[in-house]
Design a protein around this nucleic acid. Structure first.
Lengths: 334, 334
DNA sequence: ACATTCTATGAAATCGGTTTCATGCTATCC
DNA sequence: GGATAGCATGAAACCGATTTCATAGAATGT
C-alpha cells in the first residue's frame, strides 16, 4: 500500500518548492509557464489530490455547511435538502446532514458539533427551543433560518409568505360558501403556525364570519395516530365543519385518513385544503387542494444567502430576510 | 473578537504541556489526578473546544461518513438517510449528504470529493454506472452499498430480500385468482429490479402461469408523466391485466394516478400491489397493498457495518452482506 | 550605466492538534 | 543498598497544506 501523495512529493517530482505547487493549486499568485507545466505534469503523473483537511486547517474554511432539519423524512424538508444540496454542490460546498427530530437537546448538540467542525455556515430549521444558543452562534457565524424562525434572534431568514398563503386558502373556502371552517394546527407558538393562523383569521374577519374557538383544533404532537384522533373528534361532532384547513402536510394527511375512514365525501360532505403540497395529492381521487410551498427554492436561496454572508465576513452582516411566495393549487377537494 | 482558544492556551492556563492536555482530551494515557483536574478546570474556564480539523489532520480520521443517494426526496431514501443519521449520531459520526440524481458524473465527482475529505467510510446507493471507480475506492476505503449494488464489485452490501418480497406479492395476487398480472419496472439492469422481477417470474412459473412479455412494462425514465403514459397504455388495452405489480414506489404512485384517472375501481377492475410502502397508502381508499421495506433499518445497518469495517482496518476486510426481510402488507387493493 | 522597482521563487513559519521519544522520579527486586 | 523497571511528563516532530518573508535576477526609468 503506497503512502498518500502529498504536496511535497509533487514538489520534488516537479523540481519546485511546495510553495510554488500550492500557488498553482490555488491560483493565488503568478507562476511561470514552465514551472506550472512541470507541476501540472507531476500532479497528473502521481495522481495527486490535495487534502481538504490540511487546507482547512490553514485557511480556516471547510467548504461545508451544516443542514439542521427537524425531520428529513418529511417531504417538505427533504425537498429543502435537495435544493440546498444542489446549490451547495454548484459552489463546491458539501452538506452535513443533521436531523433533530424536534428535540432541543439534539439540536444543541449539533450546533456545537458544527461549530467544532468549523462549517462555513449553518442552515437551520429550528426546533424553536434553543433561542439563546442560536443567538450566540449567529453572532459568530453565518446562519440562516428556514421555514420557522426564532423571533428574537437576529439572523437571516428564508421563509414563505405563510400569512398570505393561509389567507388565500381560507378565502377560497369562504368564496365556495363555507361558513364553518375548521383549522388544524400544531405548536401554535411556532412562527409558521402563528402566521398561517393569522392568515386564516384575517380571511374570516374580513368576510364578517365569526372565529369559533371550537373550530380551532390544536393537535398535541406530530404523531399520526394522535392527530387522527383529534381530527376524528372534530369531524364526528353534530355541528361538523363543512371545510377543513390543515396547517401542515402531516396534519393534512391525518385529516385525509380520517375523512376516508369516516366515509365522508370530499368535497360534498367536507372540503379540504392543506398548507404544503404533497405529490400524492394529485394522484388520488378527489385530488387535494393545497397551498404549495417552493421547498426546493427555499434550500437554494438559503445556500445562496449563506454564500453571500460568508463572502462578506468581517463586514457587519445584516440579517437578510427572504420571503418566497406560495401558490394556491385548487383541485377537486374544494 | 477574541481569538479562538487553542490547546496551547489550556496548557499555559493549567500549567502543563500541550501533550498532557491532549492526553486528558483523548484519554490515551494516564494523567495524574491533580494535573487532570487543572486541565479540566482550564477547559471549563476558557470554554475550550478542540478543533476537529486539527485532530483529523494528525489522526487521519474524520468521524464522518459520506451518504451518497440517488434522490433524497424519494421517501425510501430519506428513510434510509434518517436511519443512517440516527445511528451515525449514536457513534458521534456525522453524515455528508450527497445527492446524485441518478447521474454518473455527479456520483463520480462525489466519490472523489469524499475521498479528498477523508471520510471514514461511504454509504453508497449506486447509480450503477461507475463500476470501476467504485471498485478502486472499495479497495482503499470502507464502503457499503445499499439497496442496489454493483454486481462485480467486492464491497459490502445492505439490501432487502427483493426476490422473496416480489415472489410473495405475486403469489398473493395469484392466490386471489389473478392470471394476468402486469409488472411495471424501470431500469431492468439494476439489481433491485432484476431480483424483484425474478421473484415475480418464479411465482408465475410455480403456479403454471405463462410469462406474457406484453405484461412486462419497462418505463423509460423515472419521470412521473412518462411513467403514467406507459401505464396508461397498458391499462387501456382491450385485454387489460386484472392485477398490477409496480416494482418501486414511484412507478406505484404513477399507477395509482392512472387508475384513478381512468376511473377504474380497485380492486374490482384491477388489483394493485407496490414494492415499497408509502405513508399515504394507508390513508387513501382503497388502501394500497405493498411490500414494505425496512428503510430506516437499512440505514442503521449500513452505518454499523461501516463502523465494524473501519474498526477492523488493516485486517483483510471481507465484504459482508446483510439481507433484511421485507413484509407483505395486505390492504384493500388486492 | 546605474539606481530602482517588479517578479518569480524557495525557506520557514503557521494552522491546532496528536504522538513519539527522552528524562527524571518513584517503586520494586534481589 | 544499588540496579532495574515503571510511570508521569514535557520537548519536539509531525500531519499536509497555505502564506509570509526574504532574495536573486530581470525589467524599467533617467
Amino acid at each position: 500500500m503506497s503512502r498518500k501523495v502529498t504536496i511535497h512529493d509533487i514538489s520534488t517530482e516537479s523540481g519546485t518548492s511546495p510553495s510554488t505547487v500550492s500557488r498553482v493549486l490555488t491560483g493565488s499568485a503568478v507562476v511561470s509557464e514552465d514551472k506550472r507545466k512541470a507541476v501540472e505534469e507531476a500532479i497528473r503523473k502521481l495522481n495527486y489530490r490535495p487534502s481538504h483537511i490540511a487546507r482547512s486547517l490553514k485557511t480556516r474554511t471547510t467548504q461545508s455547511i451544516g443542514l439542521l432539519l427537524n425531520d428529513i423524512t418529511n417531504p417538505f424538508y427533504s425537498a429543502v435538502a435537495r435544493g440546498a444540496e444542489d446549490e451547495a454542490n454548484r459552489h463546491n460546498f458539501s452538506l452535513i446532514l443533521c436531523n433533530t427530530n424536534e428535540e432541543a437537546a439534539r439540536e444543541l448538540q449539533y450546533l456545537h458539533l458544527l461549530e467544532d467542525k468549523q462549517v462555513d455556515g449553518i442552515i437551520l430549521g429550528p426546533t424553536g427551543k434553543n433561542i439563546s444558543p442560536v443567538q450566540d452562534l449567529a453572532y459568530r457565524h453565518p446562519i440562516v433560518q428556514i421555514d420557522r424562525y426564532l423571533d428574537s434572534v437576529e439572523a437571516s431568514i428564508v421563509k414563505v409568505d405563510n400569512e398570505g398563503g393561509a389567507y388565500a386558502a381560507t378565502r377560497l373556502l369562504i368564496e365556495k360558501g363555507h361558513q364553518r371552517i375548521a383549522v388544524l394546527r400544531w405548536g401554535k407558538q411556532i412562527t409558521t403556525m402563528k402566521e398561517r393562523y393569522e392568515g386564516y383569521e384575517r380571511a374570516l374577519v374580513e368576510a364578517g364570519l365569526p372565529v369559533d374557538p371550537a373550530l380551532v383544533v390544536d393537535v398535541p404532537a406530530l404523531d399520526i395516530a394522535q392527530t387522527m384522533d383529534m381530527v376524528r373528534s372534530v369531524m364526528t361532532r353534530p355541528d361538523r365543519p363543512t371545510a377543513v384547513f390543515a396547517l401542515n402536510n402531516q396534519i393534512g394527511s391525518a385529516a385525509i385518513g380520517v375523512i376516508h375512514q369516516l366515509r365522508l365525501q370530499i368535497p360534498e360532505d367536507v372540503a379540504l385544503i392543506v398548507f404544503d403540497d404533497l405529490d400524492y395529492f394529485t394522484l388520488i381521487r378527489p385530488s387535494i387542494s393545497a397551498v404549495s410551498q417552493p421547498a426546493f427554492e427555499i434550500g437554494v436561496q438559503a445556500v445562496r444567502l449563506l454564500m453571500r454572508q460568508a463572502q462578506a465576513r468581517g463586514a457587519p452582516h445584516s440579517a437578510e430576510q427572504i420571503i418566497l411566495p406560495t401558490e394556491l393549487v385548487i383541485r377537486e377537494s374544494v
